[in-house]
Design a protein around this nucleic acid. Structure first.
Lengths: 226, 226
DNA sequence: ATTGTATTTTAGGGTTGGCTAAAAAATAAT
DNA sequence: ATTATTTTTTAGCCAACCCTAAAATACAAT
């Protein structure tokens, strides 16, 4: 049952699953597991299996029973349009309605499902074609293209600048263990409190704690300043 | 099963039914029929019966089988809040996103169901607490109170002013037949094209046609200028 | 008052999306 | 390699909301 992606419509629930699958695969083309989807959506694996069958029939994912799923080209485009709407609404809520950046998620989860291409286009225009949302995440354009986020090494941040950890250069087990121990996981928000001239080490605030980090370590952590 | 109206939540579908019932009863306290609800919602009477039972259990309507339904105090308040959201979004779409006034309904039908008291409040603020929507309908405030629309007789309109027929003073059958014949039903949009000094008669545009109307007739038609 | 018509409700069924419990398949452990 | 464990799927059930067909009730007409 092939439907052209231009005219296909998914239910809100299907859109939410697709979004979750998109986020869990995150660039990497490896499959996503049923359990991961279930826990990220706060639902049960049995419900996920059911939904994967449906999404597979609609060809927005490739589904092989007992193995993970991969999102298809159509699926990715569809997901990106939902994400586009979500992030545009977040910008609206923060910039125009004076919401705090941590109050917007739940409301945007509802607004992202409103179906009106004209609305999305006009909202984009009204907000002056923003490229990033209030969390620093990029807003896909109408074709699904995203602007690469300008990423810098943690030790290249300005003092008092804040941002989000988006990647690490060194991915040795020891390094990742260290990051995990101090709470510096991918996605964590960090603030650079001070730079030590002498050895280039930095004092940062991460996961509600302040700590010192050597220049060596800091230079391997990539940040998006927001 | 009594639920306090402050904390009760209805599904989107239940909200739509309640809104339809509210609009069909329109001030008058007489009951609304199952068939009327069905045709106004483009659904079948059997589906309506089912829903009425549910809405009755939730005490937003008084339901007696085989007789009409009446909306309760709680129901009316709930409906007014949905209508409030609908009309605020219409103002947003027209004033901020440059939609035409006849393009907004479908989108507002979706936006009216977004659940976030903070969003509604901030939107109201952002729009500068509008009292009427782009169609001239009043926007209930957070307590459900609506500002009475300033209504004037058709022949008291300014030349080139446009508005909507909201009521008639004379409701004799002959008069109503005449109105029906010329397409001047309640809710119709009219534009006053010219006034004849000599006899006080008016030239108007209604239902895509221009016609002359005596002062006597025009003075019995009440308009809200928009 | 009885009959006929229109309205409304009930009965039964379909779809979507969730659940639990049990079966099946894949993966890990010995 | 076989067994144990984890993961995933199937089977069966429930609730919301819609439908059609048939039964029940109300209303109108004689």
């Amino acid at each position: 049952m092939k439907k052209d992606s231009q005219f296909m419509t998914l239910t809100n629930s299907e859109e939410n699953y697709l979004k979750a699958i998109y986020h869990l695969s995150d660039g990497g083309k490896k499959g996503v597991s049923t359990n991961d989807i279930a826990s990220s959506m706060k639902t049960k694996p049995a419900s996920v299996s059911d939904m994967l069958r449906k999404l597979g029939e609609k060809e927005v994912i490739n589904y092989r029973k007992y193995y993970g799923v991969q999102i298809t080209e159509e699926g990715r485009n569809y997901a990106l349009q939902v994400i586009r709407k979500h992030r545009l609404w977040e910008v609206f809520l923060v910039d125009k309605l004076k919401f705090n950046w941590d109050e917007v998620h739940e409301v945007a989860e509802q607004l992202e499902h409103v179906r009106s291409p004209l609305l999305t286009q006009r909202l984009d225009e009204f907000l002056n074609f923003p490229k990033f949302d209030p969390h620093g995440d990029p807003i896909p354009d109408e074709f699904g293209d995203v602007k690469a986020r300008p990423r810098i090494a943690l030790n290249d941040m300005e003092v008092n600048a804040a941002g989000q950890i988006v990647a690490v250069k060194d991915s040795s087990a020891a390094f990742l263990r260290y990051l995990d121990k101090v709470g510096a996981y991918i996605g964590a928000r960090v603030k650079l409190l001070d730079k030590v001239e002498f050895d280039g080490s930095v004092e940062i605030l991460v996961d509600q704690k302040t700590l010192f980090m050597s220049k060596d370590v800091a230079s391997n952590i990539l940040i998006v300043v927001t």
